[in-house]
Amino acid sequence: MIARLAALLLAVIAVHAAAQTPPLVAPPVAFNRATIRRGAQWFAQYCLSCHSVKWIRYDRLTRDLGFSKDAVRQQLMFPSGAHLARGMVPTLSAKDATAWFGVAPPDLTLEARLRGGAWIYTYLRSFYFDPTRPSGWNNRLFPNAAMPNVLAPISGVENAKGRLIQRGRLTPKQADQVIGAITVWLEYTSDPSKLERERLGPYALGFVVLFAVVAYLMKRAYWRDVS
């Protein structure tokens, strides 16, 4: 019986695991405003040319993350024609993108909700040089991904076996920090309310705990005469 159950569990785990080779690694950075800000800057520089995060309006970054309006204009609003009150959308049209890559780069606003931060972090670290692909790139987590390894200049180039064949501008450790920050930025875009929730949570919980305690004391007082 127990052996049967164990076999069953293994079968279920196998099905779940089959979908995710290589193992997913969580980003080695904390979720906080400073990291998100760094991630936003890297993202604007390396990703926003292809990917939109259309639900994030530029001006909310001043409120949520403490950027000044000028900083947003100079460091984040790269696409020409961008507007502070509009969403973060690249100038590259979906049609052009499809023509170039075969697949339109998807909007990444909700990517972290859909795939999870660990998936994104692992994906960005799983690119390798593959001369058989039209772009010259392939990905261990997402085989035959249409996206090129745009981070190669900073993180370097790996071969299919995972060996670094060309060093990047940053050490592997530093590069992981950058990729981690980009991941945390995408976690923020997938649910900006998280910052607000974590700020308000203690007050809300404190209030309802107090309510429960007072209600309990009242209950005890009223019920004293019930035998």
Binding site: E198, G201, A204, L205, V208, F211, A212, V214, A215, Y216
Partner: peptide, 14 residues
């Protein structure tokens, strides 16, 4: 209600 709201808020906020 008080105890329930504690659970409810914990989920909504966290």
């Amino acid at each position: 209600v008080g105890v329930f709201l504690v659970v409810f808020c914990a989920i909504v906020f966290y």
